[in-house]
């Protein structure tokens, strides 16, 4: 090796250690420490306070609502995401770039705006407001609004996860199946879906985590009615604003546990997702 040329492995020891230490202390300070604080604060007044905070009726209602909104959002977005990724990767049509951009939009735009959109469409002064009022349908400041906001915010996760994998695979296998006389649904369930199953599951996990933690969009449309339109993150905020710190941290610890579970699941799946991309049969 010529002098002055360096490979990643043989940097001077101080550089290696310095970089590692910097990265580790950054992670400890900004990720690990706050995470530990949540649990320490939650249990600061003992287990009984912790359980009381979580089993309080308002907290249970918030948990139920979060689970409901997450369930609906994940189900819908798995279907829509799959359809969108399929349309984008297996077909050519004009305006595709605009469609991909629209799919990404919920990622880029502030969730508060997502909430505002639904207020403007379905709110009392919105487009459908008067009509909905006449027919006694409540969407904003009610459960449907929360579900809609959650669906909007989590829309890109499944589609974004699937598009690169489906793009990498191309349409060869589907075309082969078509030539051999398979029908559309048959191709989808026997070729397309098995090829992307791990990526799909990965997208669903990310979607679930985001749906449960969503604050901004839900906050705008919820109206903060305790026990009725309060999700878990909103409940944490209410408790915190009431200086009920132990309870706020106790409920927050539920979300933290969820984050840890998501990370573990993500870690387990990552290898499998790579299989989806690599396992392309020989041409």
């Amino acid at each position: 090796m010529s002098p002055g040329r360096r490979s990643p492995g043989n940097d001077p020891a101080p550089v290696r250690w310095g970089l590692t230490l910097t990265a580790l202390s950054f992670l400890a300070l900004f990720v690990a420490l706050p995470l530990i604080t949540v649990f320490v604060q939650a249990l600061a007044k003992g287990w009984s306070t912790y359980w009381t905070a979580i089993r309080e009726p308002d907290a249970l209602a918030a948990i139920r609502l979060t689970l409901l909104a997450t369930g609906i959002a994940v189900l819908l977005n798995s279907l829509f995401g799959l359809a969108a990724a399929w349309a984008v990767t297996k077909f050519q049509f004009p305006g595709k770039n605009v469609l991909i951009t629209l799919i990404d939009l919920p990622f880029a735009v502030s969730p508060v705006i997502a909430g505002l959109i639904y207020v403007l469409v379905f709110g009392t002064q919105g487009w459908f407001g008067p009509w909905l009022g006449q027919h006694n349908v409540r969407i904003i400041f009610a459960v449907p609004g929360i579900v809609l906001a959650t669906v909007f915010v989590t829309f890109p996760f499944v589609a974004r996860e699937l598009i690169p994998h489906m793009q990498a695979r191309g349409t060869d296998e589907e075309e082969a199946a078509l030539v051999l006389g398979a029908g559309g649904w048959h191709i989808f369930f026997r070729i397309t879906l098995p090829n992307i199953k791990w990526s799909l599951l990965y997208g669903v996990i990310l979607c679930t985590a985001r749906a449960m933690g969503e604050f901004g969009a839900v906050s705008v449309v919820s109206g903060h009615i305790r026990g009725e339109t309060n999700t878990v993150p909103l409940h944490v905020e209410i408790l915190y604003n009431e200086y009920n710190f132990a309870a706020a941290f106790a409920v927050a610890s539920l979300l933290a546990v969820l984050a840890l579970v998501t990370l573990a699941a993500k870690r387990l799946l990552e290898g499998k997702v790579r299989q989806d991309a690599v396992e392309v049969p020989e041409a």
Binding site: N97, V98, I100, T101, L105, V112
Partner: peptide, 21 residues
């Protein structure tokens, strides 16, 4: 509120469209 939201929406749409192109 809508005015601010519109500016942010258009900005992020154009940014994303640019990246996608």
């Amino acid at each position: 509120a809508t005015a601010i939201a519109l500016v942010m929406l258009v900005a992020s749409f154009l940014l994303l469209l640019g990246i996608n192109l």
